[in-house]
Amino acid sequence: MTERLDQQSASAARRRGGGRPLGTAIRYLIFLGPAALLYVPFVLKPLIETFGLSLFAWNGVSAERTFVGLANYARALGDPIFWISLRNNLYWVVTSIVLPMATGLVIAVLLSAVRRGQRIYAGIFFTPVVLNLIIVGLVWGIIYNPLIGPLNRLLRAVGLGSLAIGWLGDRYAATPAIMVAGAWTFFGFCAVIFLQGLRTLDREQIEAATIDGAGPFRRFRKIIVPALSDQVTLLIVMSIIGSFKVFDIVYVMTKGGPDHASEVIATYMYWQSFMNGSLGYGAALAVMLTAVVAGASLAMMALRERD
């Protein structure tokens, strides 16, 4: 197939002839020009400016900015809310690796075993992935609502009324509650990725193992898990990056409250920049966040290369 395509395309190209190899500059211009036109002014330049801004004290409106060197970075290190935010980000990393990935894996294994309706099921599980986070925040806000929410109703109905707390207003429960909503938007994605991986799995291998007397858990551990290592790495990288960048869902559900307890770096940075008028400090937080994400991603890639 490829070969035929190969010949066809090559001969097509020959027939029409024309086209000399272009000079390097022109190649750059044609191929990377359009991307640069967008990327440089709207991403790269602001990023560099953010770095610059992090060295100043600025309230966002005054004409002069005061150069403070690395003081904004030092301030972060002594700021308890910065550490709360960072800790929450790390919780997000761990939870989003465990919760949606585990659910997604189970769903994918189940899905791979059904013959009919696989696409419909996959579609349903994927639905939350396509919704915007305003919707997600509103929907889950109602579920957790202490006055009308079905969650607390359910808990009381089954005699667990003592667990019926004000989820999003509780300093310990708020972050886990948001994470569950976050997992809802991500497990379908994980399931689809895993399902793709399972399709390549050798059925005979599983059956052989079954005949050898391997139980379902052993089969899962010895055959399925190793076969999905690519998918696992991918999802872990995505989870790490996504968990450090998490913003919208926290913003729409708690705005980082109560008492900054569910704050993550991105929401705290947003609050410092836009609500607290400390744009230089906000920029320093942004730079630190970028460095953390970059470091984590590079480390993951390095690990992957080594394997």
């Binding site: 609502n145 202490p146 006055l147 707390i165 004000g166 989820w167 999003l168 207003g169 300093r171």
Partner: peptide
């Protein structure tokens, strides 16, 4: 106050 005021929004309090 109602149970867990920190979880109840201003609007929800008013609605009560």
């Amino acid at each position: 106050y109602p149970p867990s005021p920190n979880a109840i929004s201003y609007d929800e309090g008013n609605a009560l």
